[in-house]
Design a protein around this nucleic acid. Sequence first.
DNA 1: ACGGCCATGTAACTGGTTACATGATTAC
DNA 2: GTAATCATGTAACCAGTTACATGGCCGT
Lengths: 185, 185
Amino acid sequence: MALRNAVLAALIDRESSGYDLAKRFRVSVANFWTSTPQQLYRELEKMEAEGLLAARVVKQDKRPDKRVFSVTVSGRDALRAFTRQEPKPTTVRDELLVQVEALAHADVGSVRESIRARIEQSRQRLDAYEKLLAEILGARSHDEFLATGNRIGPYLTLSRGISFERENITWGELALDVLDRRYPA
Amino acid sequence: MALRNAVLAALIDRESSGYDLAKRFRVSVANFWTSTPQQLYRELEKMEAEGLLAARVVKQDKRPDKRVFSVTVSGRDALRAFTRQEPKPTTVRDELLVQVEALAHADVGSVRESIRARIEQSRQRLDAYEKLLAEILGARSHDEFLATGNRIGPYLTLSRGISFERENITWGELALDVLDRRYPA
DNA sequence: ACGGCCATGTAACTGGTTACATGATTAC
DNA sequence: GTAATCATGTAACCAGTTACATGGCCGT
């Protein structure tokens, strides 16, 4: 019942197949919601059964057929109703930070390696988010866009994703510095 | 099996009752892991049964007795083993950002109010984190601490929490500005 | 007298993860 | 020929949430 709102928000401006949605959840949506493909397939079925989504089969040649889902009027109403509710507090689950919290009792070499991997991943995400933002902006400046653009919601969530990943990188570099000082190789 | 590592990390330097742990999860641990008290009570029982934690009853007067849990040698080993594993990618679930993503189809007044509430909450968390950080630092400067301090893991996770909440506030203020421009009252 | 805090728990339910399965196509 | 991508799904399990329950103490 919580994933479904993220699905509605993701499909409202662009219909998608389950497969495509899963890809979007891996990249842009991952900013504010995470989900596995399996969860999505299951949820899409339920939402169709409840009339929030409509599915149509698109034939492709040299590729399997796909079922493309779009938000119905009833889905749109449900989304609007959701925006009127008080949002639940953010939940975060970050195993890397759990490992860092336990640093004094940790295998420091492994943790160092995990921090490096996290920096690399954040760089890639940052890159992807910046490209998406550039697409939304088009030729306009931020100010022009904010005055006249129409994908203002996605602009804002992407901005949040960008600052989040930047902070991840900055933090990771600080953490590596500290480890180098305190646990020299 | 994932919550348990966060519990071990939280208890390794300071034993706690279930009730106290729940409070710590609401404040400092919320940085990197969230959990309800109910989940904690259940997990603590399991972990004790598996020998990762030891419990002792502390009698208090004018207050109910409490069961205080501490990490056993076997728990310490499990924590160290966990730090050797590759951490799973961060999962985030943020309903407010889902609402913002759907802004064009949202009840803008409600969303604005929710952003304001989020800013306020982030201010309070920031405040709490900064106080905890000050406690860890004591009279030392950051540089001194990084060279000689011993709660370096918590220092790093708290730093991440602080920059996260600062970014929340900055982002929220930007979002409110944008809403005021595009959806004037 | 009432709400909030201390302290712990059970039960029922909902949501999320993992493993498995299938089969064609495209790129190296 | 091997791996990756396209495309969809089932089943079993594990984790997380919500509602309810109890009872004394403290402050206003």
